[in-house]
Structures are given as structure tokens and as C-alpha cells.
């Protein structure tokens, strides 16, 4: 599954795929409701999602604010914690039974040094994430809920097939009732 997904990266040769598959080998199974990353935990791994669905959220006293979702074939981590080695402010929780594979930050960093195509892949993913975050920032600055929804529909039409509505509503900063009315 990981090898298939990596094989879809146009410039990866068998060498990059083999190196990544060999090191990306810590299997994790989460049942619905279990946590991949808890608030306060330090993130030392990068995870490939083989199956299932996870939400990334920011816990506050009154609500859990959804900031993102992960499903196959995504690569996911609590990014600030992964980069800085500080305790995670975010939680990553399985919304369905989920199977993942982990690779440690050290092993991944070693591969980035060793194989330029893996470094290229990482850079391109970071670029896409940054563009996605800029889009998301605009979403959040729009006062009208229908425009936030419209932009999400354009960007990720498949998300409504994957994620329960109440989490999408939280992601869009609107109540589930508003989302139902608009859909």
C-alpha cells in the first residue's frame, strides 16, 4: 500500500520507493476514538495513513476545533511538535478504525540527506501544505459561512464523502445546523 502510493510519485525510482518502504515500518492500529497524538505529547514520528480517518484538532475549554483530516494515502503528523520537538498543542484522533505506518524523524531526516528525490518530494509537499494553509487562512477571514463552504467544496469535494458533517462544520467554523442548511 505504501509502495503503491510512493510509486505514484512521478520522479521516484525503485531506489527511493525501496528505501522509504524499508524505513517506514512501524505499524500502528487505532480503534475509533483512540489517539495517535495526545495534547502535550512530543511528536517524533511521521505517519502514513493506510486506511481509516483521523481528525487533527485544537482543544480549548469549550470546544475541539477541527483543523484538518487525514485519510489514505496521506502523510500526517503534529507538525509544530515534529519540527521543534516541543509538546503538541494539537490532538490527532482516529474517527474510524485506522491503520498507519510510522517512520522516526531521525530515519526520515537521514533519507532526506541521502536521496535527493526524497528531499524534492518533501519540499514539494511542504509547498503544497503552505499553499493549502494560505487558502485556509482566506477561508477563515471570510465572514459568510456559505463562502467558506463554497471554497472547501471547490478545493476538496471528496471530503463530504469521507468525514462526518459535525467535524466538517467545526473545520468551517460554523454550527452543524448552519452546514445542514447550506448543503
Amino acid at each position: 500500500m505504501l509502495a503503491d502510493a510512493l510509486g505514484q510519485v512521478p520522479y521516484f525510482s525503485a531506489r527511493e520507493v525501496e528505501a522509504l518502504v524499508a524505513a517506514w515500518n512501524k505499524p500502528i492500529t487505532l480503534r475509533r476514538g483512540e489517539y495517535l497524538v495526545q495534547h502535550g505529547q512530543v511528536e517524533r514520528n511521521l505517519y502514513f495513513v493506510k486506511s481509516g480517518l483521523l481528525r487533527i484538532y485544537y482543544p480549548t475549554e469549550t470546544e475541539e476545533i477541527c483543523v484538518g483530516f487525514a485519510y489514505a494515502p496521506n502523510v500526517v503528523c503534529s507538525f509544530p511538535s515534529f519540527v521543534h520537538g516541543t509538546p503538541s498543542e494539537y490532538c490527532i484522533q482516529a474517527l474510524r478504525q485506522s491503520e498507519l505506518l510510522g517512520i522516526s524523524k531521525n530515519d526520515f531526516a537521514a533519507l532526506l540527506e541521502l536521496l535527493p528525490n526524497i528531499a524534492r518530494f518533501w519540499r514539494e509537499e511542504l509547498e503544497k501544505v503552505l499553499v493549502g494553509r494560505i487558502d485556509r487562512e482566506i477561508d477563515l477571514l471570510l465572514a459568510e459561512p456559505e463562502r467558506r463552504l463554497e471554497r472547501l467544496l471547490r478545493r476538496s469535494p471528496h471530503i463530504f464523502q469521507l468525514v462526518p458533517k459535525k467535524y466538517i462544520a467545526s473545520y468551517l467554523r460554523m454550527t452543524p445546523e448552519t452546514l445542514s442548511r447550506l448543503r
Binding site: Q8, V76, K128
Partner: peptide
Amino acid sequence: QAQAAAPALVV
């Protein structure tokens, strides 16, 4: 579609 099946980073 083929490229959509490649891994994508989510943070």
C-alpha cells in the same frame, strides 16, 4: 487521478 493517489502531507 493517478497523481491524487500519491501520498500527500497533512499537518
